[in-house]
Design a protein around this nucleic acid. Structure first.
Length: 121
RNA sequence: UCCGCUCCCCGGGCAGUCGCUGGUUUUCGCAAGAAGGCUGGAGGAAAGUCCGGACACUAAAGAGCAGUGUGCCUUUUGAAAAAGAGGGACGGUGAUUCGAGAGGAUCACUGGAUAGAUUAGUGCCGCAGAAAACAGACCGCCUUCCUCGGAGGGUAAGGGUGAAAAGGUGGGGUAAGAGCCCACCGCGCCGAGGGUAACCGAGGUGGCAAGGUAAACCUCUCACAGUGCAAGACAGAACAGGGGAAGGGCUGCUCGUCCGUUUGAUCCCCGGGUAAUAGUCGCAGAGAUAAAUGACUGCUGAAGCAUGGGUAGGCCGUGUGGAACAGAAUCCGGCUUACAGGGGAGCGGCCAAU
RNA sequence: ACCCGGGUCGUGUAACGGUCAUUACAUCGGACUUUGAAUCCGAAUACGAAGGUUCGACUCCUUCCCCGGGCA
């Protein structure tokens, strides 16, 4: 799915709501936070890459890779949800495949993964 | 060919599929918008923010002081910072050379934020040492006196201290010494003359007074208003104003000036409200505003590593390997810092092999 | 982005350019005590890094590194 401007979380308040009221789960390279919001018509995604993750080059690379993961797998998450992906400091050493596998694994642990091939219901 | 130094340039390439972002355009749609086409999309340092500008605002960027910076000379480029070239003085290293010595000369390479410390002043120079800046007698040397152990006087040649000790070498001289005297060397002053200038300097003169520090205050010189695009300008929407104090604005000081003290400010404090493609512009031939330039696949592919050919090196073959530092946020010019590897030019070394 | 401020023992702090760089708490050792606390005595531990100026640098200058802050 496309990660256009409408699907991005863009305000400080949105991140605060997810952080305070939502659920979260940590993987090896990243942390996922999620909150159901019935007022949404679609999914919304946010990315956080702090200075602990690395310098500007590595932070940019991590955001691009997270966007690519969401582009590939974002439609497998439930609608009307806000999902925040936070990079941990170890993420700078990971490859794209490792990040992708870790993201899916963490999403399953949060029980927001809805792959139709593995979940017939 | 190899090694080193200096300067300049490049900073993996190509293709496919799927995406992101700016602009433009076509079709559909009443509109919101949707789908597509074309096209622009990171760096030499985009970094640090160390300098200089552009630009914007501060009522007028008024005067003085303070403050900050600049720093040999000539010249080129430049808006300025700055950079380049040539030269001077000073210092370092090496070689050669002159001299009995003190010391000097020449050449080569090289260094630097290179104004002024002998005249504009002030400060500081700890410890050690006898004495440290208008200085100074601890030991020693010489001499006088006496109670023979000291006291007084002379003396800067020798010792020892220190980063630095008030010229040095040789001789004369003397009680011992001392520029006290002489020769030479060094130093200061004057200076014919040379050079655009920094500066050099024939020659004369002075027994010799003169330490270091200005990245200490300072003096001279030439500059500088402050604040920074989160500067600031504009549009329209919403709401609810209230209080303080006579002061406030160019922000260190003084003057000047403007606004305000009945209309209570453009200052301070408390409270309320609102926009969502950063509200628009500023803003760009990259141009965002939780911030685009990517993901995957294939081919190619530098150094390095392993191994083989070749007397050796250059070189050639095979395998492995799979690209440094790093990501624009107002723009431009410098400086500094980080950086795998490759290419080019110049200079020097080497003289082995083909 | 733009603009400021600061780095000293483990922690918080002092130090006209001049001896082996203060002080408090903490740490270690000893004394006192049956033991511990408190008290007393003693000890170890630091100038963010590299250059430069100076006889001499925590201090002055330059460049890096690391923290903290302001501003729509």
């Amino acid at each position: 799915m496309d990660l256009t401007r409408q699907r991005r979380m863009r305000q400080w308040g949105e991140f605060q709501v997810v952080r305070q009221k939502g659920q979260s789960a940590a993987g090896r390279y990243l942390v996922l936070g999620s909150l159901r919001d019935p007022s949404l018509s679609d999914r919304r995604f946010g990315l956080i890459t702090s200075k602990k993750a690395g310098k500007a080059v590595t932070r940019n690379l991590l955001r691009r890779r997270f966007r690519e993961i969401i582009r590939k797998h974002g439609d497998k998450l439930p609608e009307k949800h806000m999902v925040v992906t936070i990079a941990r400091w170890r993420a700078a050493q990971a490859t794209f495949q490792q990040l992708e596998a870790d993201w899916i694994k963490t999403a399953k642990r949060l029980k927001i993964w809805q792959d139709p091939t593995s979940d017939p219901a």
